[in-house]
Nucleic acid binder design. Structure first.
Lengths: 215, 215
DNA sequence: GTCTATATAGTGATAGAC
DNA sequence: GTCTATCACTATATAGAC
């Protein structure tokens, strides 16, 4: 069983800088910003606390870098979902499925983003300046709006405001993952039961949204 | 304008103990447990930090008392909503309306409860032992389940699992308030616009759930 | 680049005076 | 019941040796 030369992690970059980043992300995800210390990060990395500050100077800097990356990745998933050229029903199904799958790979992301945006008005300002105002992100929403209006004028779907449809899909998708720790713990579910539950919930959300959109 | 004798707050109890409790609740709601210190609580109350510990001994004790009260109040609202003797459609409408109104009076509650349950497995255990297992709370869900099944057998509503219906209503209701700080800040809405938005969202959620329940 | 050492400040909690 | 004083810890951040 000599595995000396086997590369075990496809994306592994063993520089201290990236190891600190990765450990920090894991801890921020699990515990949030306030409850995570640079001392704890250093301990789990196996370096000194000074090194964390050497690379990122402040805990806030380290956090921001991770936060920004995660928001960008999430917005990209949303952007990509809107590229679909299928029928509107198929597009909705594909989009919801894509969101569920992306969050299944990263189930702590919704809470991580929510927590920091709710608790820190400064981060909301930061998000507004860096994303919401950017033309490319405005375009994503306008594209979605235009397509919905078009389908409605053709009489293929029911009347609903684009913002309401967006909020409805976001609610049901995001809340599934926000409530996952409670689902698992309060109902004593195994990991495999949780996986089944997510799949079942995905199907059900798709079914319900389609029904809402029926003319 | 002599108002010396006017009682300004109907529930005000000016004992230090309750003032500490009230300020603590406000700060825990705004910042969460980890980001709130007993020093800060004392400063806002206008007493010394030692006094906070005199009444509640530990920060965890103080938090638990507030946390428990809030969960109990929330579960009572849910319990009351199930007492309705109206038609199922009217019952659903009434229930969703009740949840929206209760949360409008306490918009930070969903995040407060969510944050502490997600970040602290010990609090989930505490919740499971004190509520989920209690016969009275099990009964609330079984009542809801029975009524739904009954309506389905009578062919008055579509087939849907009770748990799915519950999650759907919870998703759309709770997420509205979880995302409120982002809605307000990112879209630069005034308080009065936010109030309108909540009312509009309530109507829309009721409409959608009714549509989902149509046979 | 990584370490040790430390400055400075804040934390939760308690002892003891009044 | 409320205060002052203090303990033992931990926090972030930096200076300086190697």
């Amino acid at each position: 069983m000599n595995m000396d030369n086997i590369i075990t992690d496809k994306t592994a970059n063993d520089s201290m800088e990236s190891r600190i980043r990765d450990v920090a992300q894991e801890l921020f995800f699990r515990q949030g910003f306030a409850a995570t210390s640079t001392t704890q990060i250093a301990k789990e990395v196996g370096c000194t606390q000074a090194l964390v500050h050497y690379y990122y100077r402040t805990k806030e800097n380290l956090f921001r870098q991770i936060f920004l990356e995660q928001i960008q990745a999430a917005l990209q998933v949303v952007g990509e979902s809107l590229l679909s050229q299928e029928s509107f029903d198929a597009f909705i199904e594909q989009a919801i499925s894509l969101y569920f799958d992306a969050l299944t790979r990263n189930p702590q992301l919704p809470f991580f983003v929510l927590e920091e945006l709710v608790n820190n008005p400064e981060r909301r300002r930061y998000l507004r300046e860096n994303f919401v105002k950017k033309p490319s992100y405005v375009m994503i929403y306008m594209q979605f709006e235009a397509r919905l209006k078009h389908e409605q004028q053709a009489g293929r779907i029911a009347r609903i405001e684009p913002f309401d449809l967006m909020m409805t899909i976001a609610s049901m998708t995001v809340f599934t993952f926000l409530s996952l720790p409670m689902y698992q713990d309060l109902l004593s579910r195994t990991d495999s039961q949780v996986k089944d539950y997510i799949l079942q919930r995905k199907r059900e959300v798709i079914r319900m949204v389609k029904k809402i959109l029926k003319p």
